[in-house]
Simulated scan of single mutants.
Amino acid sequence: MTESDTPPLSHVRADGSAHMVDVSHKAETSRTATAQAVLRTRPDVLEMIASGDLPKGDAFAVARVAGIMAAKRTPDLIPLCHPLPLAKATIDFFPDAAAGTVRIEATVSTRGVTGVEMEALTAASVAALALYDMTKAVDKHAVISETKVLAKFGGKSGDWTLKGPA
Rank of each mutant, 00 (worst) to 15 (best):
M1S: 13
M1R: 11
E3L: 15
D5S: 15
T6N: 03
P8M: 02
L9D: 01
S10L: 05
H11Y: 13
V12T: 08
R13W: 03
A14C: 03
A14S: 12
G16V: 12
H19S: 03
H19M: 08
M20P: 08
V21T: 01
V21W: 00
D22H: 07
D22E: 02
D22S: 05
S24V: 10
H25F: 01
H25V: 12
T29H: 10
T29W: 09
R31C: 06
T32F: 09
A33P: 00
Q36S: 02
V38R: 14
V38G: 01
V38Y: 00
R40Q: 13
T41G: 06
R42W: 00
D44T: 06
L46C: 04
M48A: 13
I49L: 14
D53S: 15
L54A: 02
L54S: 01
K56N: 10
K56I: 01
G57D: 11
G57P: 13
A59M: 02
A61E: 06
A61V: 05
V65D: 12
A66F: 07
A66N: 11
G67E: 01
I68S: 12
I68P: 14
I68D: 07
M69Y: 13
A70E: 04
A70L: 09
A70H: 06
K72G: 04
K72N: 11
R73A: 13
R73L: 11
P75D: 03
P79W: 12
P79I: 13
L80C: 04
C81S: 10
A87N: 15
K88C: 14
A89S: 14
T90K: 14
T90V: 13
I91A: 09
I91W: 02
D92W: 00
F94N: 04
F94A: 06
P95L: 04
A97P: 11
A99H: 05
A99R: 14
T101C: 02
I104E: 05
I104V: 15
V108P: 12
V108H: 10
T110N: 15
T110K: 12
V113Y: 03
T114M: 05
V116E: 04
V116R: 06
E119F: 13
E119N: 11
A123Q: 12
A127Y: 12
A127G: 12
A128R: 10
A128S: 08
A130S: 15
A130Q: 13
M134L: 07
M134D: 10
T135A: 15
D139Y: 07
K140F: 00
A142I: 01
V143Y: 04
I144D: 07
I144H: 11
I144A: 11
E146K: 14
T147K: 06
L150M: 08
K152I: 08
G154K: 09
S157Q: 07
G158K: 05
D159W: 03
D159H: 07
D159E: 06
W160Q: 02
T161R: 13
L162Y: 02
K163Q: 14
G164E: 02
G164A: 07
G164C: 09
